[in-house]
Each structure stands twice: as C-alpha cells, then as structure tokens.
Computed example of a mutant assay.
Amino acid sequence: MGKRLLILTAAMGAGHDAVAGELARRIAPRGVEVSVVDVLDLVPLRLGHGLRRMYGGMLRGAPWLYEWIYQAFFVSASPPPPSPLTALIARRLERRTPEPPPDAVVSTFHLAAQVAGRMRLRGRLGAPSLVLVTDFAVHRMWSHPGNDRYLCPDEASARAVAERTGRPAGRVAPVVRPGFRRADDGGRLRALAGARPDERIVLVSAGAWGVGGVVETARGLAASGRYLPVVLCGRNRRLLARIREDGIGHALGWRDDMPGLMAGAYALVDNAAGQTCREAFACGLPVVTHRPIPGHGRDGAEAMARAGLSAFARSPAELLETLDGLADERVRAARARRVDLLFDAVRAEQVIRAALG
C-alpha cells in the first residue's frame, strides 16, 4: 500500500492554497495519496466562511481592527490562552481522518499548524507533523511545540521558530509553480495594457482580496509620467471597476497567466509580502513594497527588506526613487543574487518524502 499525505490549509487569500496545491502536484506522482483539507471548512454552521468574510472586511474597511487583533494575539509578549476554535477543529479533523491514517501531515496555514500541533502533543495524531511556513515574519501563531519540524523561507525565520518551539527548523526553497521559473512574456502584458514600446510597466498587486491603498499607489505612478501601472485587482470587482472608471493606468481581474505577465513587467509593487512576492522572485522580477496591509503584511515586508530580497518604500517619493534605481542593471543583479539564494535550498517535497518514510 502506498504512503498517505494530509495537507492542511485555509483559503485566506490565495497563497496558502497555492502552496498546498503545488505541494500536492509535486508529491502525488511519486505514488503518494495526497488529501488536501481546508481547516476552516471543518468549523460548523459555515462559521469558517464567516471568518473569511470578516477578515476580508477588516482589511478593506477597518485595517486598524486587524492591526489590533494581530498585536494582541499574534505578536503580543503575553500569549493569550489557546483558542477554543483550535480545539473544535481538531476534534472534527479527528473524525474526518481517513483509515488508514496519514503517514505525515503538512500545514500551510498558521491555524492548521496549531490544530496539528495540538493533536500531536495530545497523542491524537500518530504521524509526523510538519509546518511549511509561508510568512517571512513568523508570528507566534505559526509555532506549536507539538509539531515535529518546521520548513521556513530563510535562516532568520528558522532560527526564530526553533528558539520558540524547541523543534527542528530549516529553510526550504519557495514552493511556486514551475512556470514562474521559465516564464516568457511574448508581449502579452504590453498588449493588454496598451503600452508604448518605451513605457515601463509596473504591476501593482492587491492580492486575491483586492485590498490596500493600491488606488493611491497607481495614481502616483501614473502621475509621475515615468511608469504605467497595471493593477492586479484579484477578485475585487469593485476595485477593478474603480480603476477602470478613474482611468488610472490599467486594471486586471483574477488571472491564471501570471508567469507571463510578470515576465513582461519592469517591477512589482506589492502590499502583502505573500505568495505573489515569491512568484515574482522566481520570475526574476524585482519587488518593492509600498503601503503594506497591517500586521503580517507590514512585518513580512520589513523582513524581506532586511534580507535584501526586496525594497520597502515608505513614501510615494521613495517609491519612485526606488523604481528609478532599478534601471541600473547592477542594482537588479545584486537583488537577483540575494533572491537566488532562496531557491538554492532543499526542496520542501524532499523533506516531506523523508518524513513519509
């Protein structure tokens, strides 16, 4: 009988699901039966769906509230008590775990890591539990001493997790679709944006939720006369309509051809420090953070900038100055060398296969 792998994720944005899906794609052909479970779907009465809507609503209309929650529960020096939600999801996951049970469990979302760690610590999960950390700034919710191993994006985050949990932690290469590593534009982005041959196209990412101050960012880029902003609005139709009505650059909804679009851009202006940044890294597209969303978005942007992977522009003037600097091939090459080190690491699926036995 083949090995079984259970991947726990959550559809908070698109990044965690993207990582889970790519892991499944890489591992399943090796004779492993892979199951992917969204832990929020295990919350009764569709309350998990309500949590998603609440999170998106906070980011759009009350970012100050999310910042308060993040400071109080995710990074506070005084840890709150364990969440009843974790215990509830753990009980329901136990009932849904198939027979025979999995040979390993991998979590790609922090709540999933809490659930798996709790089950492992209490003897309710016999298989090794690994956590694939998808944030550069590893807040406390990622860490649970019940998990066996942590797979982190860089050495700094691995050290922080190991100190907090006492568990082994090491860096692994970013988990992105292979198309991003060999992307070819073919002129599609320039044609979509109606750009002149000499115009520098800057992608402005609002994530899957379509949140943050991207309208102001796009307006500033367009007003400079030096860059043509193309706003990636995700699934936010209102944002898409607003950008198009205001005539600020160009706007795109949810896209499945991001590798090609990134290959045709001059730079990416991001506000969440999430999976879109790792995809840009894979494409060789320089990343600049501006107007980050609160909490993990801001902290992740600062962590990436400290590591030399991206730039953090804290004002509109600094954003333009940073983008202007990317015209120097030496600057781009230096950034690319730091990014290449991310991918010069063991692949996550190799560690997971070893855990499967």
Score class of each variant (00 low, 15 high):
177 R>P: 00
213 G>L: 08
211 V>T: 15
207 G>S: 14
120 R>C: 02
235 R>A: 11
185 D>I: 04
182 R>V: 04
119 M>K: 04
169 A>K: 10
138 V>A: 15
116 A>D: 01
133 V>H: 11
208 A>D: 03
125 L>N: 02
176 V>M: 08
189 L>S: 03
179 G>F: 13
104 A>I: 06
230 V>G: 03
108 T>Y: 11
129 S>F: 12
242 R>S: 05
100 P>V: 09
187 G>F: 14
118 R>C: 00
157 S>F: 05
180 F>N: 01
228 L>G: 02
181 R>Y: 10
125 L>R: 05
212 G>R: 10
205 S>Y: 09
219 R>I: 00
225 G>S: 06
115 V>E: 02
188 R>H: 09
187 G>R: 11
238 R>V: 06
202 V>K: 07
128 P>C: 11
174 P>G: 06
201 I>S: 03
235 R>L: 11
164 R>C: 01
167 R>W: 11
223 A>Q: 14
246 D>I: 00
180 F>E: 00
188 R>C: 00
146 G>I: 07
173 A>Q: 04
117 G>M: 08
105 V>C: 04
148 D>K: 08
169 A>D: 02
106 V>C: 06
139 H>W: 08
232 L>E: 01
160 A>I: 01
144 H>F: 12
146 G>M: 10
183 A>Q: 07
228 L>F: 09
170 G>F: 15
236 N>M: 08
120 R>E: 00
140 R>A: 15
127 A>T: 03
177 R>W: 06
136 F>P: 00
